[in-house]
Write a protein that binds this DNA or RNA. Structure first.
Lengths: 113, 113
DNA sequence: CCTCCGCATAGACATCTGTCAATATCGACC
DNA sequence: GGTCGATATTGACAGATGTCTATGCGGAGG
């Protein structure tokens, strides 16, 4: 099981000071989780939806991929702490977690500032 | 050969609207380039250095990895358009390119805003 | 209770990725 | 021009990753 990776909000921007090996090991999995075209689109689809949540049934239709493959990608995003999972009746809804993405943005920003 | 990937400054934040498949394919390689602990540290080391540039000779010493491995990672960051390469005398200097990282930060930011 | 539907898991497979040792390249300096 | 020092390239290899098919699981409705 992967850690929720909330342990990121600590870090100064990339260009502020050299990142420690430990910080890099902690942050890289978060970037890996979104460094895939399918997962990027999934995250965007969910985050741009009403209430930043979407039903798996809708997500499956948006891709030319098998249902298990989508499920696999959603699992990775969930394991990275970027999505929350909630079952409502027959359907499963995934909701975007704003914190980690905001932290990543802060990490990458301020390089050329 | 990989494309310089400047074709990113176009995109609205992730949560603004669903990302197109084409945009995802264009952006994912950029994220892949920084989704590695070693490359994250390399980028941070260079970006946080004076003039946002550093000599390869210094970078090699900062890691417990072979010289070819560091060279390989630098090549990937360069191919992604995140580093510029300049040879001065015997040494090679890499400089951080601010644009792409700033664009990525803009892409990820504004999710929970 | 049996079946169907939505989603997850398991297993298999090809490809990609990170690493190293060995070697090449390219200047500088003697 | 020969040698040496700094990087890059090549080839090899183990392990991670993305995809599929087949199967499992749990709830809703007949």
């Amino acid at each position: 099981m992967l850690e929720p990776a909330e342990a990121l909000a600590c870090c100064p921007p990339l260009a502020r000071e050299p990142m420690s090996a430990a910080a890099a090991e902690r942050i890289a999995p978060l970037l890996k989780a979104i460094a895939d075209p399918v997962r990027l689109r999934l995250l965007s689809l969910i985050a741009s939806h009403a209430d930043a949540e979407a039903c798996v049934c809708d997500l499956n239709d948006a891709f030319d991929l098998s249902q298990p493959t989508i499920s696999h990608h959603l699992k990775q995003l969930h394991a990275a702490g970027l999505l929350e999972r909630e079952k409502r009746g027959v359907w499963v809804y995934y909701r975007a977690v704003p914190g980690p993405l905001r932290d990543l943005a802060a990490l990458l920003g301020g390089v050329g500032a």
